[in-house]
Design a binder for these strands. Structure first.
Lengths: 255, 255
DNA sequence: CGGCGCTTTGAACCCTATCAACCCGTGTGG
DNA sequence: CCACACGGGTTGATAGGGTTCAAAGCGCCG
C-alpha cells in the first residue's frame, strides 16, 4: 500500500530542503535498509527505558511523542507526519527519554542505527543534515513551550493547526487549505495542555468566521489562513520549511 | 576574573560525560578561539532575525532563551549555566529562531562558527558529541513542555529547581543541596508559564516543610531533596548528567 | 534621603478544570 | 434486524487555580 521508498524519498526531500546533499549522498539515504511495520492507534512502538537500535521513519499515519506526569497526565511533546524520522536523535541517544505512540493506524519503517551511523561516518554532510533536522524539531519544541506556557486555549489550538498546515504543505500555503489531521479531541488536548472538554468548547468557537472546520473525517479545512495565523500568532520561519538555496549551509566541501 | 580556559574545560567536561573523546580531540576543543564579553542583565546578546557567525559559551552568569507571543508575553524556553554552549545548534542553524538574553551579569565567550565547523569536519567524533549535547538540551525542552502543560504551579517550580540542582551538581546530589540560582521571581514566572504574583505566592507555600529556601542572595538551599523530587515529579534520567562509560557511544572508530 | 528594582499583599475576576451525563455513529453478535 | 457496547463528541453545573490590577513594603545603592 505504501512504499517505503516513497517514505525515504519524502525524508530525503525534507533533508535537502534545508541542507545541501550530493546525488551520491541522497541515493545512499534512499538505499537505507529497514523493516516496515504497521501499528494500531494508541500503541507505544518506542517504549521508555530500554535501549533501542533503530530509528523510526513514519511512512503513513500520525505519531506522537508522549510525556507524562506521575498522576498519569499525558502531554504530547511532538507530532510526526509521513516523511519524518520521528526519533532520528536516537542515533546519538539510544535510551529514549520519552515514548513514541501511534495516534492512528500508522506504518513505520524501522531503520537500524547501524546503517544510519555508517552513513553519518561515511558522509559527514549527511551527519550534518541529520543534526540540522533534529534542530528544526527542537525549534518546534521551543514553540510548543511558548504555546502551552503563554497562549490562550484558542491560540494554542490555532497555532497547532497552523504548524501542521505548514508542515504538510510547506511553503505553498494559500489562503484556503485542506489537509488531513487524524487526531481526536482528546489527543489534541494532550498536545495543547488542555482538557478534552475545553478543547471541544474552544473548537466550537473557532469557526465563528468560518475560519476552520474540522470535519470528523479528520480533514481540516482552513478558509482564512491569514486570519488564523493572526489569531494563532503564528510565524512560520522557525519551521524552515523551505530554506532558500543561498541560505543553506554545508560544513564539508563537495568533492 | 573568569578564565575562558576554565569555561572551555567545563564545556569539555560536559561533552565527555556523555561522549567519548580522545585526548587529541579534547585539546582541540580547549584550543578553540573566542572573544570574551560581559553583558548586563536583561540584555539580548543574540537577537532574533539576523544571521550569526558564532556560538556563545557561558563563562559565568545565567542566560535564558526567550520566546514571545504577540501581546508581549515572554516565555523562557531554556536556561543556560556556566559551561553551556548556549547556542551550539547555531553551527547548523545560523538564523536564530529565539533570542538569548542574560538574566544576570554574565560573561560569554563568543566562539566563531568557522572554528567549530572546522573542528567538526576534522573530528567527526566531535561533531557527534556536539549533536548529542544538543539532543540533551532537546530532552530538557521536552520536559519543559510537560512542565508547563501538565503540572501545577508548585510542581512546575519544584521541577525547575530540581532540574537546575541536578545540572549544577551532576550526579552527586545529596539530600541537602545548596546552589546559586540568580533568578528573579519575574524570570521564574517567565520560565514556568506563570505570573510573577503567583510565583511569589507559590514560593511561599513551598518551604512548608522547610524543603527549599530561596534567600534573596539567590542561593537556593534544598533541605529535603527526596521530598522535593517527589513533589516535582522529577526523574533525572533525561538530563544524562553522568552517562556510565559503558553507555557512551561513538560512531567513529578511535584511531 | 530618595529612587529603583524586586517582593509582597489584597480583592475581584475568569479561564479552564472537574465531574457527570447524554448523544451519536459504528460495528458486532444474537 | 434489533440490542448492545464502545469510542468519540457534546453539554451542563460547579469549583478552583491562576490572573489581573493596584498599591504598599523593603532592601540596596547612589
Amino acid at each position: 500500500m505504501f512504499s517505503s521508498t516513497t517514505a525515504l524519498q519524502r525524508f530525503v526531500h525534507r533533508l535537502t530542503s534545508r541542507s545541501v546533499l550530493t546525488q551520491e549522498e541522497q541515493s545512499a539515504i534512499l538505499d537505507l535498509p529497514g523493516t516496515a511495520e504497521q501499528v494500531g492507534p494508541n500503541r507505544d512502538f518506542v517504549p521508555l527505558g530500554s535501549r533501542i537500535d533503530h530509528s523510526c521513519l513514519v511512512v503513513a499515519g500520525l505519531v506522537g511523542r508522549f510525556g507524562q506526569n506521575s498522576e498519569g497526565g499525558r502531554q504530547i511533546t511532538a507530532l510526526h507526519i509521513r516523511g519524518d524520522m520521528a526519533d532520528l536523535h536516537s542515533v546519538v541517544q539510544q535510551v529514549p527519554t520519552s515514548a513514541l505512540q501511534a495516534l492512528t493506524v500508522s506504518t513505520l519503517l524501522r531503520v537500524p542505527h547501524q546503517a544510519l551511523r555508517r552513513l553519518s561516518a561515511r558522509y559527514p554532510a549527511v551527519a550534518e543534515a541529520f543534526w540540522r533536522d533534529c534542530m528544526v524539531d527542537t525549534a518546534i519544541l521551543a514553540q510548543w513551550v511558548v504555546n502551552v506556557g503563554r497562549r490562550s486555549a484558542r491560540q494554542r489550538i490555532a497555532h497547532l493547526i497552523c504548524e501542521m498546515a505548514t508542515r504538510y504543505h510547506g511553503a505553498q500555503v494559500g489562503n484556503d487549505i485542506t489537509f488531513d489531521l487524524p487526531i481526536t479531541q482528546h489527543q489534541l488536548a494532550d498536545a495543547s495542555g488542555l482538557t478534552p472538554v475545553h478543547v471541544n468548547r474552544t473548537l466550537q468557537k473557532l469557526p465563528e468566521s468560518n475560519i476552520v472546520s474540522w470535519s470528523r473525517g479528520h480533514v481540516v479545512h482552513v478558509a482564512g489562513w491569514a486570519e488564523l495565523k493572526r489569531i494563532a500568532d503564528f510565524e512560520a520561519e522557525y519551521l524552515q520549511a523551505q530554506v532558500e538555496p543561498a541560505g543553506r549551509l554545508r560544513m564539508v566541501e563537495i568533492k
